[in-house]
């Protein structure tokens, strides 16, 4: 699904990723852990072509395509979805209008017929009822005045509607209470059909417990320094990063 080789990425002319390698196969769930500034968010941003990122060298193959040759929109429509740590508020854009536009753009890209208003409403109501999501968010403007939890639930709603192939989840659990984490985890698990893959950034073991990763990676200074299975996340929770030789200079 995704094959990253020797990736070097700058943000604001500062080198953040320094020769990163990562391979994700269809159906796999990978978790990235690391101290602040290790390069976790930069990696997911680089995969989804964020305007801050400048790829200096290396390659990213996605579904056997050169991902670096595709722009942000094309990557999204090819099935890459990045869940934002802090989703931006856009007053004046109705949430339902946004969701319908995004879904129909994807359908157009896949040569599928666009959904009309009635079919779209039926679809969105089905998804929302499955995960106890409040329909009121549809009538509001995109993330405007949403609490942290509402923003994350709105990201989940987009995931459920757009049904991406590769989910990049940047701290989707932050700012959520335990019940909301369970809903989000249930939503994400519902998408795992053995073909979709996840690359998830989290600081907390709770999310790992609910979405059982196949691989856990520790990222430090722009490189993956250790890879293991779920037990690595459990060990990290007990010992902290220092036990793996990671120094947090911000402390």
């Amino acid at each position: 699904m995704l094959d990253i080789k020797d990736l070097y990425v700058n943000i604001n002319k500062k080198e953040i990723l320094k020769g990163l390698n990562l391979n994700i196969k269809p159906g796999e769930v990978h978790v990235l852990m690391g101290i602040n500034g290790a390069g976790k968010s930069t990696l997911v941003k680089a995969i989804s072509s964020h305007y801050d990122c400048e790829v200096n060298s290396g390659s990213i193959q996605y579904k056997e395509k050169n991902l670096l040759a595709l722009n942000t929109t094309q990557r999204a429509n090819e099935g890459i979805f990045m869940s934002f740590q802090n989703p931006v508020e856009i007053p004046g854009i109705n949430n339902m209008y946004f969701l319908k536009t995004a879904l129909n753009e994807k359908r157009k890209h896949l040569n599928q017929e666009e959904l009309n208003a009635a079919s779209f409403l039926k679809l969105i109501r089905e998804k929302m009822s499955l995960f106890n999501l409040d329909e009121k968010v549809l009538k509001r403007n995109l993330n405007e005045g949403f609490s942290g939890g509402e923003k994350k639930r709105n990201e989940l709603l987009q995931l459920l509607i757009l049904e991406p192939d590769l989910l990049l989840l940047d701290e989707i659990d932050s700012g959520l209470d335990i019940d909301a984490i369970k809903i989000v985890a249930r939503g994400i698990n519902s998408l795992l059909d053995g073909k979709r893959s996840i690359l998830m950034i989290t600081h907390y073991d709770r999310m790992c417990e609910l979405i059982k990763p196949d691989f856990v990676h520790i990222l430090s200074e722009g490189k993956i320094i250790k890879t293991g299975d779920y037990s690595l996340a459990v060990e990290l929770e007990k010992t902290g990063f220092e036990a793996f030789g990671v120094q947090d200079e911000t402390h």
């Binding site: 964020h50 942000t72 929109t73 931006v88 004046g92 995004a102 753009e105 987009q158």
Partner: peptide
């Protein structure tokens, strides 16, 4: 970027943002 990351082409995303000012 947020709109584009959801598959909306650049020109359409700009139109949506412009409409948001009117809204």
């Amino acid at each position: 970027y947020y709109l584009k990351s959801r598959g909306i082409p650049s020109h359409k995303a700009i139109t949506m943002i412009i409409e948001s000012f009117e809204n």
